[in-house]
């Protein structure tokens, strides 16, 4: 029996690595390998035509002194700080509203989910037109309500906030996740609190929110990582303008790498972005200990 156990152990070891081999190759070839390589490239000057030249920390010195780096970090953080709380609250409340058993509720669920599966290039085109100051949907509504027309994403102060509005429209994914979580909360908890005389609002605060806190945390984390990497809609809709008001970090990095062929400098930028995201994520994890409630702990 003992020998048999050891055989099984050995065969599981062998087969285990056979099964995860493609994954190991993928991790080394497409993730950790490139990361290390990019760290190396960040200490060089390289246009991909002439050979790379080692220049020490010069790229990092340059990015510290480059005003556009600060601008683009500011724009990206501003966007993330607006979007993450706003999207978290709205998607959560929509999910709460959707969590009822009435006929046709799945139609509503579909309505909130669909914008998140639309190709982002297409939604960028659509919102470009919605935001159009002359003929767009929003100003048409504003005019018919007698409100003054706006310049939306085409104004320096409006660019980021209106991109946030568009992003909230696209975050239906989180609604579906919340909804599944809400349906998993045991009914008995609510019945017990009702017996104790709690009203609907009190059960929401003391049962729904704590029970959902791990899922809220997960969605916030995903929203944060996504927001920090915003690229496509800005690339298409504003190209960073007006006056760099929507110069997101990824857009700045893309320009340096693929327009000006500055692979070394852009790699240094990418490490800065990585460190910022890592720090924010770590901060979110740390803060989560105070408010995220895990049932089985």
């Amino acid at each position: 029996m003992h020998g048999n156990g050891r055989n099984i152990e050995r065969s599981q070891l062998k087969w285990g690595y056979v099964f995860i081999a493609p994954c190991i190759v993928g991790l080394l070839l497409f993730n950790f390998g490139p990361m290390l390589y990019s760290l190396f490239v960040s200490f060089t000057e390289w246009d991909m035509i002439t050979p790379a030249r080692f220049i020490g920390a010069a790229n990092y010195r340059e990015l510290i002194n480059e005003p556009l780096v600060g601008t683009s970090i500011g724009v990206t953080l501003y966007y993330a700080m607006l979007l993450v709380p706003l999207a978290t609250i709205t998607t959560f409340l929509v999910a709460v509203l959707l969590n009822v058993k009435i006929k046709g509720i799945s139609v509503f669920r579909t309505i909130f989910y669909i914008p998140s599966i639309v190709p982002i290039v297409a939604s960028s085109a659509l919102w470009l037109y919605i935001f159009n100051p002359m003929f767009g949907l929003l100003n048409s509504i504003f005019r018919s309500l007698g409100l003054p027309p706006q310049n939306f994403i085409f104004s320096p102060e409006g660019a980021v906030p209106w991109l946030v509005v568009m992003a909230v429209w696209m975050s239906g994914n989180a609604v579906v996740i919340y909804l599944a979580g809400l349906q998993g909360i045991s009914r008995e908890l609510y019945e017990a609190s009702e017996l104790d005389g709690a009203n609907a609002f009190q059960s929401f605060v003391h049962i729904t929110v704590p029970m959902m806190s791990p899922i809220i945390f997960y969605n916030m984390l995903m929203a944060l990582i996504g927001a920090m990497q915003t690229f496509t809609q800005v690339f298409i809709m504003t190209s960073g303008g007006p006056n760099n008001a929507s110069l997101f970090f990824s857009l700045y990095l893309y320009r340096e790498a693929f327009k000006f062929q500055r692979m070394g400098y852009a790699s240094a930028l990418s490490w800065v972005l990585f460190l910022i995201i890592a720090a924010l994520t770590a901060g979110l994890f740390r803060a989560s200990r105070k408010w995220v409630f895990y049932e089985n702990k």
């Binding site: 497409f30 990019s38 990582i225 990497q229 692979m263 490490w271």
Partner: peptide, 11 residues
Amino acid sequence: MIPYTVVMIPQ
């Protein structure tokens, strides 16, 4: 957790 931007250039 690795942003695509970090692996984009080396890839």
